[in-house]
């Protein structure tokens, strides 16, 4: 489509003014086509593309979980977990799928469900804690999301037994 640039609106005959609204609608449709090319991917917001939840496994362990939507992936080396106020020991990240990156070299990515055991620095039976997770991922459609920050608030059990229910991350504070 040609984009012409006229400094001032052209003069119009009165009868043509009747078409002005219609023509403007056409221009609007053209603008829509121009601004949103048909090839532009339909994309999920990051909190839906990378759904974070967590559950207490026992008084000393939280399991964090990302449900990564089809067509999206997370970078393994961008995952960070912390627990407030107790503190977390190093989380054992499961192995990812290898992916070669021209700038960063060989990296690993996660697709589908990623479950990560986050051991607490010390057991905290019955306490309510906040798990924070930093992550960064992309869509196969050709976009990447900036590092995002999710939080899940959950209460640890008094004693070991059945794992607690999964708690979804709060929406707020997603962006760093």
């Amino acid at each position: 489509m040609r984009v012409t640039s006229t400094g001032s609106p052209p003069r119009r005959l009165p009868e043509r003014l009747r078409y002005a609204a219609l023509a403007l609608a056409v221009a609007g449709a053209q603008a829509h086509a121009q601004l949103f090319a048909p090839g532009e991917p339909k994309l999920l917001p990051p909190e839906q593309a990378f759904r974070l939840s967590a559950r207490a496994l026992d008084p000393a362990t939280i399991e964090a979980r990302f449900d990564v939507a089809d067509g999206y992936y997370l970078y393994r080396d961008k995952l960070r977990f912390s627990v407030d106020p107790v503190g977390a020991a190093a989380a054992a990240l499961p192995p990812g799928k290898p992916k070669h990156d021209e700038f960063f070299g060989d990296v690993e990515i996660y697709r589908g469900v990623v479950a990560v055991r986050v051991p607490l620095a010390s057991a905290a039976p019955g306490r309510t804690l906040t798990l924070s997770a930093d992550s960064q991922g992309c869509a196969d459609a050709g976009v990447c999301y900036p590092p995002t920050h999710g939080q899940v608030r959950l209460t640890l059990p008094e004693r070991a037994g059945k794992p607690g229910p999964f708690v979804e991350a709060a929406r707020k504070g997603w962006f760093k």
């Binding site: 489509m1 984009v3 043509r16 056409v26 609007g28 829509h32």
Partner: peptide
């Protein structure tokens, strides 16, 4: 109608255009 009458000259800053 627009293709004949208005054409792309209507492309100018406006409510729904650029």
């Amino acid at each position: 109608a627009a293709a004949v009458g208005a054409g792309v000259a209507l492309w100018r800053p406006g409510r729904n255009a650029a």
